[in-house]
């Protein structure tokens, strides 16, 4: 049985006391330690992007982050982002456009897209493709996802989304 170490992580603005073994990733701790199952374990190698969360404001692979290494960092998961206007606009357009099927890649897509729209309110098609290039989807073929991101950006710019 591996040693477990006590640590406090800042998740979605709240301090969370938990324990983690040296090899426990942030992903494992979020899902199994804290019940935040929005981030998914797709490949556990950093390739698929289903585990993507924001760490200190930037999208990172929670499967490649060690829980014990995140002690003083600001972690925001899809659960936390769901409170933000940008993510809510994306969730609406993802639904209306039909940008998800099985939904497994969707949390990661939303985190990456939210990060893009927070930096760039008027992305081009190319900007969206680049920002999402680290997120894999096996169902949709990506077109609807890109459409949904561009639509959400337009909605946010027009001030129509609340």
């Amino acid at each position: 049985m591996a040693d477990r170490f006590a640590t406090t992580l800042k998740i979605n603005g709240q301090p969370q006391a938990t324990t983690a073994a040296l090899e426990d990733t942030l992903l494992t701790t979020l899902r199994e330690g804290l019940g935040l199952t929005g981030a998914k374990r797709g490949c556990n190698q950093g390739v698929c992007g289903a585990c993507t969360v924001l760490v200190d404001g930037r999208p990172m692979r929670s499967c490649l982050s060690l829980a014990l290494g995140c002690a003083d960092k600001d972690v925001v998961t899809i659960e936390g982002l769901s409170e933000s206007r940008v993510t809510q606009a994306l969730q609406k357009t993802f639904a209306s456009t039909g940008a998800f099927q099985c939904g497994f890649c969707t949390p990661g897509m939303l985190v990456a897209a939210t990060s893009l729209l927070m930096r760039n309110a008027a992305p081009s098609d190319g900007d969206v493709r680049k920002a999402l290039s680290g997120q894999l989807c096996r169902c949709t073929g990506y077109f609807k996802i890109i459409e949904a991101v561009l639509a959400a950006a337009a909605e946010l710019r027009s001030g129509r989304s609340t």
């Binding site: 040296l22 090899e23 990733t25 556990n44 190698q45 950093g46 692979r61 499967c63 490649l64 982050s65 060690l66 014990l68 290494g69």
Partner: peptide
């Protein structure tokens, strides 16, 4: 030693390396 972790943690996840401490 662990730097960004992009390679090391991927290897730890695959069971390829098992450091006793980092």
């Amino acid at each position: 030693p662990i730097s960004g972790g992009a390679s090391l943690v991927a290897m730890m996840n695959a069971g390829i390396v098992e450091p006793t401490a980092l």
